[in-house]
Simulated assay, not measured.
Amino acid sequence: MPNEAERDFLQFHDLGADAILSIIARAQILAEAWNDRDMPQSLAGKRVALIVDDGGWRNTTAFELGIQAMGGVCARPPARFGAGEATADLAKYLDNWFDVLVVRTRELSALRELASSADAPVINARTRSNHPCETLGDLAYIRSKRARLDGLKIVALSPAANIVRSWIEASIALPLQVTQIYPEDWHVREIASPNFTASTGLDALFDADVIVTDCWPDGASGDRLLGYQVSASLLERCRPDVIFLPCPPVTRGQEVSADAMSHPACQSPRAKAYLLHAQNALLEWIVA
């Protein structure tokens, strides 16, 4: 059972390997329960705030649906960070009513400030810096397809954005190998992990277990980035069992071609089903 200091989930490596693997294992069980329409009422009596301060809909919808399916109460306070009300004050007001705070906002620093002031545990539902729930869900899906996660080779065709950063965070906690492939200007430099490397060449792509992408940077030259686009022909050169998980929202014609989205390696819609199951397992673990 997590203690008070361990219940926040702001970065993937906030949780140790044992906790992460137990959550991923539980997600497999909850996936079966979901399909059987027989969800455990693990959140009965729990009140969860779902604060959406930065758009998006997939993982926040999954949170709301999962909370309700497991017997909890979910409310969406229209709270905003950095909009006049001190975050420390906001935390105490939220503590009056809620057992867990799930927050999607732009700045990771706002979540850190909220977590430092709130008694309720805080879950990062996405920031511009990282997206740990997305990676947790992807790992839960990958675990449903493969016997083990040890030694998994992840290749990210991505700028220094929240998806690749969360995979690097995962490589701190778990024995995963993460390689970012992109022009050097957009390499991640601020996160240290012995299991992370960055390259401008595509060689690591052809031995990857999992390929992920993110959107092209704003204002970047398409001519410069087209060589890093994932296409069906590129996927044909990869391992036959590779799992391609383009990060939604997908921009066809930029980071992916239209034919890549229909390639058998592309498993993003099925993988994103596990976003619900992994987040449900995370909530269970937090309130245990």
Score class of each variant (00 low, 15 high):
residue 98 F to S: 06
residue 172 I to C: 15
residue 267 Q to M: 11
residue 163 I to H: 04
residue 95 D to Y: 13
residue 142 I to Y: 09
residue 117 S to T: 07
residue 171 S to P: 04
residue 256 V to A: 15
residue 110 A to K: 10
residue 79 A to C: 12
residue 198 A to Y: 01
residue 111 L to G: 11
residue 98 F to M: 08
residue 121 P to V: 09
residue 143 R to V: 01
residue 183 P to G: 03
residue 1 M to R: 08
residue 25 A to C: 01
residue 155 V to T: 07
residue 72 G to C: 03
residue 186 W to N: 12
residue 104 R to E: 04
residue 171 S to A: 10
residue 188 V to G: 01
residue 286 I to M: 02
residue 240 P to Q: 04
residue 288 A to K: 14
residue 12 F to M: 00
residue 16 G to P: 06
residue 92 K to I: 11
residue 130 N to A: 07
residue 1 M to D: 10
residue 39 M to T: 05
residue 67 I to N: 14
residue 209 D to M: 03
residue 170 A to L: 10
residue 187 H to E: 03
residue 65 L to S: 14
residue 231 S to Q: 00
residue 110 A to Q: 08
residue 51 I to K: 01
residue 246 P to V: 08
residue 284 E to D: 05
residue 253 G to H: 13
residue 134 E to G: 07
residue 225 L to W: 09
residue 188 V to A: 00
residue 39 M to Q: 12
residue 182 Y to E: 13
residue 194 P to S: 00
residue 137 G to K: 05
residue 78 P to G: 10
residue 45 G to Q: 06
residue 206 F to I: 07
residue 122 V to F: 10
residue 108 L to S: 04
residue 62 A to T: 13
residue 269 P to F: 13
residue 285 W to L: 07
residue 243 I to M: 14
residue 222 G to C: 03
residue 114 L to D: 08
residue 282 L to E: 05
residue 159 P to A: 11
residue 51 I to G: 02
residue 230 V to A: 09
residue 58 R to L: 15
residue 247 C to H: 09
residue 135 T to H: 03
residue 106 R to P: 01
residue 264 P to N: 15
residue 167 W to R: 00
residue 169 E to R: 11
residue 86 A to F: 05
residue 75 A to E: 07
residue 196 F to E: 06
residue 34 W to V: 10
residue 203 D to L: 04
residue 132 P to D: 12
residue 238 C to F: 13
residue 73 V to M: 05
residue 208 A to S: 09
residue 60 T to V: 15
residue 85 E to A: 09
residue 254 Q to T: 09
residue 77 P to W: 12
residue 254 Q to M: 09
residue 164 V to I: 07
residue 78 P to T: 03
residue 62 A to F: 09
residue 7 R to G: 05
residue 151 G to D: 01
residue 171 S to H: 08
residue 183 P to C: 03
residue 2 P to D: 04
residue 105 T to I: 01
residue 95 D to P: 06
residue 171 S to K: 10
residue 284 E to K: 04
residue 283 L to F: 09
residue 128 R to L: 09
residue 146 R to M: 02
residue 140 A to R: 01
residue 145 K to R: 15
residue 76 R to L: 14
residue 51 I to V: 12
residue 192 A to C: 03
residue 82 G to N: 12
residue 44 A to Q: 15
residue 122 V to C: 08
residue 61 T to K: 12
residue 142 I to Q: 02
residue 265 A to G: 14
residue 144 S to M: 05
residue 120 A to K: 07
residue 188 V to L: 06
residue 283 L to W: 01
residue 146 R to P: 05
residue 50 L to P: 03
residue 98 F to G: 06
residue 22 S to H: 07
residue 244 F to H: 12
residue 274 Y to S: 06
residue 112 R to Y: 03
residue 25 A to D: 07
residue 173 A to I: 00
residue 42 S to E: 04
residue 232 A to K: 14
residue 232 A to L: 14
residue 199 S to W: 02
residue 53 D to I: 03
residue 189 R to Y: 09
residue 86 A to V: 04
residue 30 L to Y: 10
residue 66 G to T: 01
residue 50 L to G: 13
residue 186 W to Q: 14
residue 8 D to I: 00
residue 42 S to R: 14
residue 155 V to K: 03
residue 278 A to I: 00
residue 108 L to P: 00
residue 52 V to M: 15
residue 46 K to P: 04
residue 203 D to W: 05
residue 195 N to I: 01
residue 83 A to K: 10
residue 193 S to C: 02
residue 7 R to L: 02
residue 260 A to D: 03
residue 7 R to Q: 13
residue 131 H to D: 08
residue 4 E to F: 11
residue 195 N to S: 05
